[in-house]
Design a protein around this nucleic acid. Structure first.
Lengths: 331, 331
DNA sequence: CTGAAAGCGCTTACAG
DNA sequence: CTGAAAGCGCTTACAG
């Protein structure tokens, strides 16, 4: 727990010189060597707190996700943590489990912690605290969905194109009766994912409103809506718009003793290893998790370094589709 | 971004008084009111960094888990984050994905951040950095497994009893040929979970070494080992010692077209919602996730408040068993 | 290139 | 109960 002051004494220089050395300035060669030696001798570790007090920087980034048990979000956070750590930024993580009041508490908490940056997942409504933070110089990156009426950097995927492609591909395979278990279409992601499907269906004249069920991204609702939809309509294919909905659909198909792809084809969203216990292997839209994390950290680190501070980027990444065994060609 | 100094000026008192007020000391009633008013007027927010510099406290706790996509660990962290946040502590989260070098880097990072506490999951080998941190006053809590030759608080579950109970229950149901896909038995958890099984089997004279396969907690190895085991031995029941191994076993049984529980009974470890897409519903050992988080934060917060600083607790929580449809009674 | 000094926003022992 | 002052461990404009 030596301080810069002790290092200075041992090295025979002033504290200012030690500070400069630590911050990469060039000193007289001899001084640099002496300082380095003193640092090692004393096992000096710089005090990030004290540094932060002067610099008005905490080297901390708040990350807010809905749930820490959401594998999609945490797999992004996992990469992000590594990238930021490599740049000496730590992550303060918070989740709020869909409770808006808790979200506000957590944001207040991060505000009080004076984080330098904030990464916020799937939030669409602007909150006053966000503006306050932004005004005080906190860089905010929205992930998954842009925040309405709020200018910030955003890293998104092209949800519309993802759905459009998946649906088109099903159509290519001869399907016309394609159902969708959509998400909350009052929100950005849900809307985009539904629109892409609708566009593809309309282009081929297959659009039918009764093929559409709205759900809430949970497994259980996904399961119920799938059961409902299949009771009402005869479908040859089904498209489910997120991981948990896909799980629910799989469960429903099993309850109905429908075989995939013999009885019905299935395309899901978001790949996770767990899916591979299903046979046949599901066809799924894959989000570029690592790339998303890279973009978030790129955008954020640039700003944190003071580069292009007042231009905002909205980055939209394309998705991939893992085409395996759960879709059958029909005529 | 008002400071204590400005508040003092507006309230007509000294900075010391404002500081005392903020820290809960009683002042003259009038002064307290003036200070409170000034705080609101100026929207004063205390600077945790500056506070930390004086107090030598960061109000931050490092949390190290193997993988941010491990739902078991993150569900504990989710509770933990809430409990700590309520006490004004933030969580710095790190994962290392099984890479010991990365683990060391992350621990160094947390050391440099001067965290006040450290929660470290499933680490068994002591590392020099841990001793260094402990010597400098960082409170360390081991979760999942105790750290060998290292004295710290620990929050564990009774793995031995969990296995013993599960196996005994299978025996009660008439099973004698009970296989186990165990974990890494060179490690604490793997060993304990195997020992409990062995003890139950031995007590009834059913022990047979060929019923045992060692695995590595991954789905894929779990799958392979299950296939091997069932090719070699005729079993009426199988016990799998963690979540991912259980997933692998389910997959293997499916490949072999074995029905649960008609053809073979199955007991798994760790309950997660995902399991419920399987029919029949699996019988699983359940760890008390929320309680684990509570104990971690209790132990840690006490120490952080300076209570019982030099006694260490090893808390072993009992598990529960969710007994549902995947075990058949036989005679 | 480098030292002396002021200051970041707090806390707290000291004196009254 | 409270003010003045020193100090936590750094950074940096200023002067040389």
């Amino acid at each position: 727990m030596a301080t810069i002051r002790e290092v200075a004494k041992v090295a025979g220089v002033s504290v200012g010189s030690v500070s400069r050395y630590l911050n990469g300035y060039r000193l007289k060669k001899e001084n640099m060597e002496n300082i380095q030696q003193a640092i090692e001798e004393l096992q000096f570790k710089e005090n990030i707190i004290a540094k932060g007090l002067k610099n008005k920087k905490t080297l901390a980034v708040g990350v807010v996700i809905n749930s820490l048990t959401d594998v999609f979000a945490t797999s992004i956070v996992s990469y992000l943590e590594t990238f930021l750590e490599q740049n000496n930024y730590s992550i303060l993580i918070c989740d709020y489990n869909g409770d808006l009041d808790r979200l506000k508490i957590k944001l207040d908490f991060l505000y009080n912690r004076s984080v330098d940056g904030l990464v916020i997942f799937h939030l669409e409504e602007k909150l006053p605290i966000l503006e306050k933070m932004q005004n005080e110089g906190v860089f905010i990156v929205a992930v998954d969905a842009p925040i309405k009426d709020f200018t910030s950097d955003a890293v998104l995927i092209d949800n519309y194109a993802a759905s459009y492609q998946a649906t088109s591909k099903l159509i290519e395979y001869g399907h016309k009766q394609i159902g969708i278990i959509a998400g909350d279409t009052s929100k950005y992601i849900g809307k985009q994912r539904l629109l892409g499907y609708e566009m593809a269906m309309k282009e081929h004249g297959f659009y039918n409103q009764s093929f559409i069920k709205l759900s809430d991204y949970t497994r259980e609702t996904g399961r119920k809506k799938t059961l409902e939809l299949l009771k009402e309509e005869h479908l040859t294919a089904l498209y489910t718009v997120n991981y948990y909905t896909t799980l629910g659909a799989v469960q429903a198909l099993r309850q109905l003793k429908l075989e995939v792809p013999e009885d019905i084809s299935l395309v899901g969203f978001d790949y996770f290893e767990t899916f591979d216990i299903f046979s046949p292997k599901l066809n799924v839209i894959v989000q570029p998790v690592k790339q998303i994390a890279e973009k978030i950290s790129d955008v954020l680190l640039r700003k944190l370094q003071g580069i292009d501070i007042d231009t905002y980027e909205k980055i939209e990444l394309s998705t991939d589709i893992l085409w395996r065994e759960s879709v059958k060609k029909i005529n």
